[in-house]
Write a protein that binds this DNA or RNA. Sequence first.
DNA 1: CGGCGGCTTGAATACGCATTCAATGATTGC
DNA 2: GCAATCATTGAATGCGTATTCAAGCCGCCG
Lengths: 371, 371
Amino acid sequence: MSDSTDGAKRTASRATSFDVAALARVSQSAVSRAFTPGASIAKEKRDRVLEAARKLNYVPNSIASSLSTKRTNIVAVILGNLRNPFYVHVLEAFSQRLKALGRQILVFTVEPGADSDDAILDALRYQIDAIILTAAQISTRMTSICHQRGIPIVLFNRYIPGSDASGVRCDNVGGGRLIAEAFLAAGARSFAMITGDPRGTTSQDRVRGFVERLLEGGIRRAAIEEAPGLSSYDGAAAAVLALFERRDRPRPDALFGINDIMAMGAIDMLRGRLGLTAPRDMLVAGFDGILEANREPYRLTTVRQPIDDMVEQTLALMHLDDPDTPIARGVDMPLPAQLVWGETTPRPPGFASAEARAATPRRRGPARSRN
Amino acid sequence: MSDSTDGAKRTASRATSFDVAALARVSQSAVSRAFTPGASIAKEKRDRVLEAARKLNYVPNSIASSLSTKRTNIVAVILGNLRNPFYVHVLEAFSQRLKALGRQILVFTVEPGADSDDAILDALRYQIDAIILTAAQISTRMTSICHQRGIPIVLFNRYIPGSDASGVRCDNVGGGRLIAEAFLAAGARSFAMITGDPRGTTSQDRVRGFVERLLEGGIRRAAIEEAPGLSSYDGAAAAVLALFERRDRPRPDALFGINDIMAMGAIDMLRGRLGLTAPRDMLVAGFDGILEANREPYRLTTVRQPIDDMVEQTLALMHLDDPDTPIARGVDMPLPAQLVWGETTPRPPGFASAEARAATPRRRGPARSRN
DNA sequence: CGGCGGCTTGAATACGCATTCAATGATTGC
DNA sequence: GCAATCATTGAATGCGTATTCAAGCCGCCG
């Protein structure tokens, strides 16, 4: 375990391609070629190089490599809010896909509500090949700088009308409509929503779709309660309380949480403090389709975002493999959203049979092990 | 929004320090100095440089900088399992602290149970300044390579006896004892544990402390059920079922989930499928002290890991600011763990008063029935 | 048998910045 | 008033790799 040079300072002895070249009795070029797939080098010589590299524990220096190739194979992922499991799932999905593509991830977390300009500037210093932006504001100055530098930047789960940056998201308006429809089908009469950060089209679109569909059903009013402190479990819980303190309106019998984590906060507040259970005392629905919302205490009716498809589209927009492709500007790519029936709304007769559910074990079925 | 060169290919026009120097009529050295805090440069000249840089949208190239300084200011964080919110909180904590220290994070996710050697090699290519390893195996060959290269590597929430790598963790044995003690104080007679990955000292130590303390209390047996598919919510749920199918032992009246997420899975399975509620039908406790376990459906009694202290110790071990300090080898740094009373165990008389709880709203108030 | 194209190879160079070194001008101390 | 110290400056060099370029080598076709 402990070698001879025990108390040694950090000797920082890192073999370079020249060291390997010397040991293998070849040129440095040959070493470089040995580690470059598809490079022109005789098989026998490559083996000799790899052998020498192994002996020296040689690890190619990607930093130096990046300096000449002008590609780092690093993608920046800027996250706003890891308190919402949705974005954790998003990070996981990107991590998995980018690993498969041989890319690294530089993560940035930004205070929810703060703008992401600083994070983007940090990212640019590292010459990242692309930027994925979730849940954060961005200035047009930044998008313009990125374009000037040839860095693709894709907004995930949001879009900014008129912006140069492209965005991948789901059909939030349509999703909001699905929830309204489910509520109407269940015979609800009085409606409420809990929203988080009112900036951003994601939230607005969901509200719009919801209200729009209610209108078509003849419902002209819906209470909209904005949670304090932006989107969060706790904010939603507080918003539910506030909603119940309003005496000017009838108590709602259907509650739409703008995302699952807030719907969960609402459900817990309803049950724990107000003694109300869904769907008996109130219908509840969320949005996102996160794993956690399908667990026993919630079984939330929600709209599932097609994360995997969204991730794939995001990667496609970035053209990581052919950097010379012109960057797509201002593309808005909405993907279809799908209603997932849980148990916080009664299921209408037509939907009584088995439904596709979120990617968790069959509800109440024999639990399977894989996670 | 759209400038004149609309359909332009990726022009990749990035100003260099030479461009800035030319515009500011100074040498490239001056530009470098203008961006280096503490460098010797006249204030007036620096301003001139910064002005020119602004005009050109100049962003210093950290890659090139790293090549000469041999420091990237990047720290690799290797994560095993983002399905467990504990590690999400850990990532958040590191992200926040490292941002404050001006460092970037390169994240790697590793399949739970897989070894992390590949991720480490990838990290080394990027000349990261340090490695933080959570929830993953590591070979002695890797630790040795890291040491040879002068890269500090710190294991988070685990340690490997006899390894060169240092580790920061909490006192898992002591924590396990605390849970046993809480169960004993509540008068439990028959005990069970649900464990995940049996490799790794973290899980073993918790089991050991638990069993050890039970022995001291005169209890000689405890059922240990290993969840299929390693540590996970679903695995724990399955393990609970398996536990109840064992007819050879009395049904346990106290259940220790090796971590909170598994305890949550157990609680949901008990309640949803077996109709059992904690603490009425069974005492339940977990370990970690995650936010989620203190929500309404759980209110879990658990042992809180001092994440912030652990993060701080981890950073201290890495000596990011003085790279010439010899790397600490094989340090094992256990921090004290603290019992957090929830509602899944009865609180003994002495603890009836207010306790420090996790940061969520006060547990249920007067349950008003508004109907 | 001559020539041509394809595959390998190594020397040299570029990538963008930090830093060393020597020189200059400015300032202080005596 | 002069020497000595100090702050500021630019030219030059190095960091580790990829890539270009020209040269060497081989086999193959006509």
